[in-house]
Design a protein around this nucleic acid. Structure first.
Length: 943
RNA sequence: GCCGGAGUGGUGGAAUGGUAUACACGCAGCGCUUAAAACGCUGUGAGCUUCAUCGCUCAUGAGGGUUCGAUCCCCUCCUCCGGCACCA
């Protein structure tokens, strides 16, 4: 036996594969498109975390190829953008030179791992032949009115000296450098992604194979809310109106004031009429100076009242005050709100601080679903008004409770229905007297508002929907009338200390009543029944929303997602293909003039003036207007880093096409991407941008599918051995080159896949790595164990392994796949293996450890390359053993095991297992016998 | 605060209603060796019992429930990670 020399083997086969071009993709047969998120080639090179996803897709695509699929598995470079430029500035090299150097280094590193990329299709976003088509897509967006210039204030990073999109922020800091961003008004190009918000949201339904957390992030980011637009009239001179957006039109009757954001568009006119104009103006100026962080950090509500101006609540007809406060955002909805302090937390805080009236219009509902009082479905409700009384002892700090003596076991407070026309407070007093005999209860106060309880009324044999009001009484003395016998028979009165009350009560409302009683101010933001809302009283939140919109407003849907700020005031990006002409205005560069090349310059530092460094290159900037041929200037802003990555996956299908971004036939063949693997950090940016562009390209007929990526799996981070992020800064980086030199690429691959579940973050552990190496060496040494005939258990385990590996690769469960191969190797080592079995094993090992497998295949396998040969077929018949081990349980506890012939019937098994369990069954009656076929026999006995 | 995901030996993890702790690392003992490395063999959740076996009890973040049987399903709570966050 030759000794296992990974260096020799790996070098040899990498060369051979490249020479024979076995990984070239062709449009023939059943296709599968497997894609990695292409890397940004940084100056630091790869660390061991980077290739984890690439190894997984490599295994996946090798498996597909061995099963006869036509595989597209390409790689390229996302090389434009701030980091490349900042690196270049810092190291005083041109970004183009730096990128070239970094790409070369990355590619060398990737090749060492033995990945099966079709390098013939390599792309680079900074290649003019590539970005020509990025510019082309921009022009199409412009033609369709989806790219426009805006002068609204945007996020400006003072350190990177460029504008940023909302997606580029982490909180209020630049995602790149951590600097707090400013709001800065400037001219910029914006893409109308909001036009696609609904489709981006809806079509998540088309993606059952995306992980839920990614879809959830996208939903969050799109931030759809459905509600209504409602106009409030401002009486007085003119016919001014304030329109608001609300998701809770059902609470309109509870809108007791309105709030305008400091930047509210109609502020000027309102300000004219305010009697405290200066004060309000001062607040607005102050709020404008506040940075986003100050607004964020200090959530204490501030604001100022607009004196002398009022609006009219269209539902109640009542006048409500107006406030200006910065807790209302200018850019969401209309920049003004109706405030409902009883049912909105923020409004509640503000109202409390400014002493504004709070009016309950939705009541809490308790719907009993358990026990004798459970609401009976599909039966109608009877309605009644009722009171519930908290009654305090005349001397002690104790409260009156009742325990029902019927079977229900209900423990409650004194309660009862309000008779027609009866006063609420009087009702409480009457009920106290009737049920407890105490005659001197003094009403103290109301507790909270209305609350509904739904239950089944035993005596009346009907569902009840009772609208309760809670009242608090104190007994002045112990004077008591006798209680009528009928009443006394129903319940016992007991006194409970304050801390015992909640535990004693069984009614479902107990905690709430008691908490509200004890001063915990509760606002209710949930759904319920309407109260204090005139004819809408009694409607559910949902019903009321519809009815109130119908009468007082219009339906409206809003989204949190903002249009995509698409220009950067930096050098290293795709030039935006636009020409500004003093006569013709904004003129797109004609398609035939693409690409607009990034000029080669010596100086590319940002100017910081809001102008791109390109503006200083007069030779490049000054052009003829394509329309009037007069003097004109080029657009000097560049595109953000995310531009190229929004469509690159299409280019791999046809990377050298000079006439179109991608040929339609080729697109039809390869699209969509069947499997997309990459970092979860791209959940809201790259993936939302790419989906947006894809949908646009579908609309203009350039692509044929609604979604670009059918299945998406995020790769879990590999942390450093110290559990931190792997970074040059911490000095804890592990370089794959070193690992490959010492242990080999095959070991690295197997180890990274064996570490744990693919999408989990796990810390690197070099000492565990040795296990992967040992496994490969044992697989290698198995050649010494080749025998003519071996134990049938080996053949059975082989087929089990073939089956499991195939399934596990499909499910991205590489860790369990490898453990199954280890189990097989351990067994084969012990029992010996036939040559045929060894060949099959080499084939299933091949996707994981391609080099060693190819070497073994050459020696012990068939012709050609193992990676293009057929994946072994598993035979279900061979999985069946001729014996089975039945576990004997007593009440679910394992007590014994019995070996049976595979075709033993249940009756035999019962007899034999009962014998085996005799010890435990003696003198007991077997109440039940449960047999799970081929697995266990369980005897249920009395304990 | 809201939404999503997770919590299992010394460590990474396996098992999605049926023998919890597969597989691997580490550790301990033994073998091979002049020695070491490598490799091989044996053992390895905690506890009780026993001369030793056999055997028993407990343990999957905590508590409760459903079930013949729960790491897995349901309820309550705790902790950690990720996303969003004054979005009306």
């Amino acid at each position: 036996m030759k000794s296992y020399d990974h260096k020799k083997i790996e070098k040899k086969w990498q060369k051979e594969w490249a020479k024979k071009k076995i990984y070239r993709s062709k449009e023939k047969g059943k296709k599968t498109y497997i894609l990695d998120m292409f890397p940004y080639p940084s100056g630091e090179g790869l660390h061991v975390g980077h290739p984890k996803g690439y190894i997984a897709t490599d295994i996946f695509s090798r498996h597909a190829r061995m099963n006869g699929k036509s595989v597209l598995h390409p790689m390229g470079w996302d090389a434009f953008g701030l980091p490349a430029e900042n690196y270049a500035i810092k190291n005083k090299v041109h970004p183009r030179v730096a990128v070239e150097k970094n790409v070369k280094r990355f590619k060398e590193q990737l090749k060492l791992i033995g990945l099966d990329y079709d390098w013939n299709r390599e792309i680079n976003t900074t290649d003019p032949e590539f970005y020509k088509w990025t510019q082309w897509i921009f022009l199409k967006l412009f033609d369709m009115g989806l790219a426009y210039q805006s002068f609204e204030p945007i996020n400006w990073c003072p350190s990177c000296q460029t504008g940023l999109a909302n997606e580029d922020l982490e909180g209020n800091a630049c995602e790149r450098c951590g600097t707090i961003v400013e709001k800065r008004p400037m001219r910029q190009w914006v893409l109308k992604i909001t036009d696609y918000a609904e489709r981006l949201l809806q079509d998540l339904e088309l993606l059952p194979e995306w992980q839920t957390h990614i879809k959830e992030s996208q939903r969050n980011w799109i931030g759809k809310s459905e509600g209504a637009m409602i106009r409030f009239r401002v009486p007085g001179s003119g016919d001014q109106e304030i329109e608001v957006f609300t998701t809770r039109p059902d609470t309109l009757f509870g809108a007791t004031y309105m709030v305008l954001s400091p930047e509210y568009s109609g502020m000027k006119e309102l300000l004219e009429r305010a009697t405290n104009k200066d004060e309000v103006h001062e607040y607005i100026v102050k709020a404008g100076k506040k940075t986003e962080i100050e607004r964020q950090e200090n959530k204490e509500k501030t604001g100022v009242k607009l004196e002398g101006v009022e609006a009219i609540n269209p539902a109640t007809g009542e006048k409500v005050p107006l406030y200006v406060a910065d807790y209302v955002l200018a850019h969401y909805g209309t920049g003004a709100i109706m405030a409902v302090p009883a049912h909105d937390e923020r409004d509640w805080e503000f109202a409390k601080k400014f002493n504004i009236a709070v009016k309950q219009v939705v009541s809490h509902v308790v719907h009993n679903t358990e026990g004798a009082y459970a609401v009976r479905p599909r039966e109608p409700f009877k309605y009644r008004d009722a009171v519930m009384c908290i009654v305090k002892h005349w001397e002690k700090n104790e409260y009156l409770c009742q325990e029902w003596t019927d079977y229900s076991g209900i423990r409650t407070l004194i309660s009862g229905g309000i008779e027609d026309g009866e006063d609420v407070v009087a009702t409480g007093k009457r009920e106290i007297e009737e049920e407890s005999g105490y005659t001197n209860a003094k009403f103290v106060r109301h507790i909270g508002g209305f609350s509904f309880i739904e239950f089944y009324h035993q005596r009346k044999e009907t569902n009840m929907r009772a609208r309760f009001r809670y009242l608090y009484y104190e007994l002045e003395n112990g004077e008591q009338k006798p209680i009528p016998e009928a009443e006394a028979a129903q319940h016992v009165n007991v006194w409970k200390k304050p801390d015992e009350v909640v535990d004693f009560l069984t009614i479902s409302e107990k905690e709430r009543v008691w908490e509200v009683f004890n001063g915990k101010e509760e606002i209710f933001t949930g759904n319920g029944y309407l109260v204090n809302s005139s004819k809408y009283d009694g409607l559910t939140t949902e019903e009321a929303k519809e009815k109130i919109i119908e009468k007082f407003g219009t339906k409206k849907t809003t989204y949190k997602i903002r249009d995509w700020v698409f220009s950067r005031q930096r050098y290293w990006g795709e030039p935006i293909p636009i020409i500004h002409c003093p006569k013709c205005g904004v003129v797109p560069v004609p398609e035939k003039d693409l690409p607009v090349r990034l000029p080669d310059v010596k100086k590319y530092e940002p100017t910081g003036t809001g102008e791109s460094p390109l503006a200083a290159i007069t030779k490049w900037v000054n052009v003829k207007c394509p329309k009037c041929k007069g003097k004109a200037k080029r657009e000097t802003n560049t595109m953000p880093q995310w531009a190229g990555s929004s469509w690159y996956y299409l280019r791999y299908m046809d990377p050298k096409n000079k006439k179109a971004p991608v040929d339609k036939k080729k697109e039809k063949y390869w699209a969509p991407v069947d499997l997309y693997v990459g970092g979860a950090e791209h959940a809201t940016r790259h993936l939302i941008y790419a989906r947006f562009w894809h949908k646009f390209l579908q609309d203009i007929g350039a692509v044929s599918t609604p979604e670009p990526f059918t299945r998406l799996i995020s790769v879990g981070l590999i942390q450093a051995e110290d559990g931190r992020k792997m970074s040059k800064r911490f000095g804890n980086v592990i370089n794959p080159d070193d690992i490959i030199a010492t242990y080999g690429a095959d070991t690295l691959r197997v180890y990274e896949m064996f570490m744990g579940p693919f999408s989990d973050a796990i810390a690197w552990n070099t000492s565990s790595l040795i296990g992967a190496r040992r496994f490969i060496e044992r697989a290698w040494r198995l050649q010494e164990k080749i025998v003519a005939k071996t134990d049938e258990a080996v053949e059975r385990e082989l087929h089990k392994t073939i089956k499991k590996i195939g399934e596990d690769i499909g499910n991205f469960k590489f860790n369990t796949a490898i453990s199954q191969m280890m189990i097989f190797v351990n067994l084969a080592e012990e029992k010996g293996i036939t040559k045929k079995q060894y060949q099959a094993f080499i084939a299933i090992l091949a996707p994981f450890a391609p080099h060693v497998s190819e070497e073994l295949w050459k020696e012990f396998g068939g012709k050609g390359f193992v990676h293009v040969s057929m994946w072994p077929k598993f035979d279900a018949k061979k999985l069946v053993a001729n014996t089975m081990n039945i576990v004997v349980q007593i009440n679910g506890k394992v007590r014994a095991q019995v070996l049976f012939d595979a075709n033993a019937d249940e009756a035999t098994i019962r007899i034999e297992t009962e014998k085996a369990a005799e010890k435990w069954l003696q003198g007991k009656e077997i109440r039940k016998f449960i047999y799970v076929k081929g697995r266990l026999a369980n005897f249920v006995i009395d304990k």
